[in-house]
Design a protein around this nucleic acid. Structure first.
Length: 426
RNA sequence: GUGGGCGUAGCUCAGUUGGUUAGAGCGCCAGGUUGUGGUCCUGGAGGCCGCGGGUUCGACCCCCGUCGCUCACCCCA
């Protein structure tokens, strides 16, 4: 009947548990703060969508849509997919609800891609990001990029480079694609093994190829920037000069095409140079002026970016940045059976303090050890004599060199005394 | 989808040409200190040596299979 074999988390997924989850939580809280500062409201959308939301959005020929989506059929025969990225769902919600524009939202979500896991790449990872719909004002592009930049900066990342490019709008890109295809066709024999026969399915992808043969061929070929129309050129110039104005360094990268078909005009990527591996993009995004239409809505401009939380945590680790989170204020050590601790921790918690205690009536030495490991600022000791006199002994656990590390306070003064300690520590 | 590496204690890892009771460090528990953590000392618990099969008198070790983890390619966050 029952199989006693333990079951592990699925391939490419992982548990984020205390010890690590504090960093995750601090990172999300930081992003929430910054997104709000920039005027974005939180948007929560379903984890799964009609598969068309993603197919139409990110392009049926993209790798993600072709082979990386978790697609399934529900009991009613509808075909759904777990979201592989954040933008398409948000735009679907925009089309469905017709909010007034400009509509600025931020999100945090798991994202799913069926691919072989490796360092910095998971089948379920977490993304946070923003989307802004309803205007093609280039200053909005600047703001979205600025938000990402300030967020990384505030986290403590110092080795992030902003790569930026313009994909043009539909017409300039079409002109460019004709030229690029002609060039690739002429030199297809010199492309890498993978693209020699496969380049025509998505010529832009060849620009993204890092292999020597492809780089050589595309270097000698036409570049998208040279095909931008007057409007697109001006849009791009306004974005980059806007970045200059507010002091955000950028790097023009004409090869930056990114993986999803919906991008138009501005595209950008944040590369964490501290990450040695190929998985060094901690965030990216761009403008998508056709996506709302593709999802059945009115033509609506939009721009956004997404950032991978796991990648950011790896980048922070690589840069040796430690995200601090608030530890315990106090740990109650009760050697009289634990009933005094019960009341004490409740009172302290009600006063807004973070408090833990030990259980199972362990020895004082054992409880003190736990108090120490807990990282609490102070230990609150209750033994027979304290219980007798209605007092608590407060012991400073962090400053081992000061003389008066312990003091006795009445139960009535405990809350205020602990608050004194934690305020001093700040 | 393709290729490499690795599966031994909670964690990180040793383990001799195949040989008898499988080890260390850290962590955990307890004691040294019957009311005091971090340092130190002592002791203890904890292992189907991933799983299945094969070779052998004998397998953690060699062979095959399988599952899992991991790294890389591809692509991406």
């Amino acid at each position: 009947m029952s199989d006693p074999t333990p079951i592990n988390a699925p391939i490419g997924t992982r548990d984020i548990l205390p010890g690590e989850s504090e960093h995750f939580a601090t990172l999300v809280a930081t992003f929430a703060t910054w997104a709000q500062r920039y005027g974005f409201g939180l948007a929560l959308t379903p984890l799964f969508e009609d598969v068309g939301v993603f197919n139409r959005g990110i392009g049926e020929d993209s790798d993600v849509a072709r082979k990386e989506m978790y697609v399934f059929e529900d009991r009613g025969g509808r075909t759904y997919a777990l979201r592989p990225e954040g933008t398409a769902s948000i735009v679907r919600a925009f089309v469905q609800h017709h909010p007034t524009t400009p509509w600025k939202v931020w999100y945090i979500t798991p994202a799913f891609r069926y691919e072989r896991p490796q360092a910095g790449r998971y089948r379920q990872h977490h993304q946070l990001g923003v989307e802004a719909l309803g205007t093609d004002d280039p200053y909005l592009d600047v703001e979205v990029i600025a938000l990402a930049w300030r967020f990384y900066e505030h986290l403590g990342l110092r080795q992030v480079r902003l790569h930026i490019n313009s994909m043009g709008h539909a017409e300039c890109r079409a002109m460019y694609l004709t030229q690029l295809s002609a060039h690739l066709s002429e030199h297809s024999g010199s492309l890498c093994d993978e693209h020699r026969d496969g380049w025509s399915r998505n010529p832009l992808r060849v620009l993204d190829c890092k292999k020597e043969p492809c780089v050589a061929v595309t270097d000698a070929g036409p570049m998208l920037v040279d095909f931008l129309c007057e409007d697109c050129r001006e849009h791009f110039a306004t974005v980059t000069s806007g970045l200059d104005t507010i002091g955000i360094p950028w790097l023009a990268n004409p090869r930056l095409v990114r993986g999803f078909d919906y991008y138009t005009r501005t595209t950008f990527e944040f590369v964490a140079e501290a990450l040695g591996s190929a998985q060094n993009a901690v965030g990216g995004g761009g403008r998508y002026d056709k996506l709302a239409e593709q999802l059945g809505g009115e033509p609506t401009s939009g721009i956004g970016f997404g950032s991978g939380i796991e990648r950011l945590l790896l980048a922070l680790e690589a840069e040796k940045v430690v995200l601090t989170s608030k530890g315990l204020d106090a740990f109650v050590v009760d050697t009289t059976g634990g009933a005094v601790a019960l009341e004490l921790v409740e009172r302290l918690r009600a006063a807004g303090l973070s408090v833990d205690r030990s259980y199972d009536q362990r020895s004082m030495k054992s409880q003190m050890k736990r108090a120490d490991r807990s990282g609490a600022a102070v230990a609150l000791l209750v033994g027979p004599s304290e219980r007798e006199s209605g007092t608590v002994t407060i012991r400073d656990l962090r400053n081992s060199d000061v003389a008066d590390r312990q003091q006795s306070v009445t139960l009535a003064d405990v809350v205020a005394s602990v608050q004194d300690y934690t305020n001093k520590a700040k």
